[in-house]
Amino acid sequence: MDTEREPVRVVIVDDDQLVRMALRLVIDGEPDLAVVAEAADGNAAITVADEQRPDVVLMDVRMPGRDGLSATRELLTRPAPPRVLVLTTFDSDDLVLGALRAGALGFVLKDTPPPRILDAVRTVAEGNPVLSPAATARVIAAATGPYSSAARGSAREAARKKLSALTERELDTARAVADGLGNPQIAERLHISVATVKAHTSSLFAKLAVENRVQIALLVRDAEE
Rank of each mutant, 00 (worst) to 15 (best):
R169H: 05
A135C: 04
L181I: 06
R101K: 15
P113M: 08
L105D: 01
L105R: 07
L131F: 07
T173C: 15
A155L: 14
A135N: 00
A143P: 07
K110Y: 05
G145L: 05
R116S: 03
V139S: 10
G103C: 10
T144H: 08
T123V: 11
V121G: 01
E170H: 07
T112S: 14
P184Q: 09
E126Y: 05
V121S: 01
R169F: 03
D172K: 13
A151C: 05
A158S: 11
E157R: 15
S148P: 09
G106V: 04
L105S: 13
L171R: 15
V96R: 03
T112F: 02
L171A: 13
L166H: 07
P184L: 08
K162W: 02
I117W: 00
G98C: 06
A165K: 13
D179Q: 15
G103I: 09
R138T: 01
F107C: 04
S164G: 13
R122N: 11
R122S: 11
A137Q: 12
G153S: 14
A155M: 08
A155E: 12
A150Q: 12
G106L: 06
V177T: 06
E170W: 04
S164I: 07
L166N: 10
V121N: 00
P146A: 10
L97K: 03
A104P: 02
S132C: 04
P184E: 07
A142N: 11
V177G: 02
P129F: 02
A176N: 04
A178F: 08
A158G: 04
A104C: 08
G145W: 01
L118F: 11
L131R: 04
G180N: 10
E168M: 06
P184N: 10
T167M: 06
V139Q: 07
G182I: 07
D111W: 03
A102S: 14
L97E: 02
V124D: 05
G127F: 05
L171F: 12
P115W: 07
L97H: 03
E170V: 10
A165L: 13
E170K: 08
A165T: 14
R138E: 01
S164N: 13
A178T: 06
A135W: 00
R122D: 06
L105Q: 14
L166G: 06
A134Q: 13
A99W: 00
R101P: 05
V124C: 12
R156M: 13
G182E: 10
A143Y: 06
A159H: 03
A137K: 13
E157M: 11
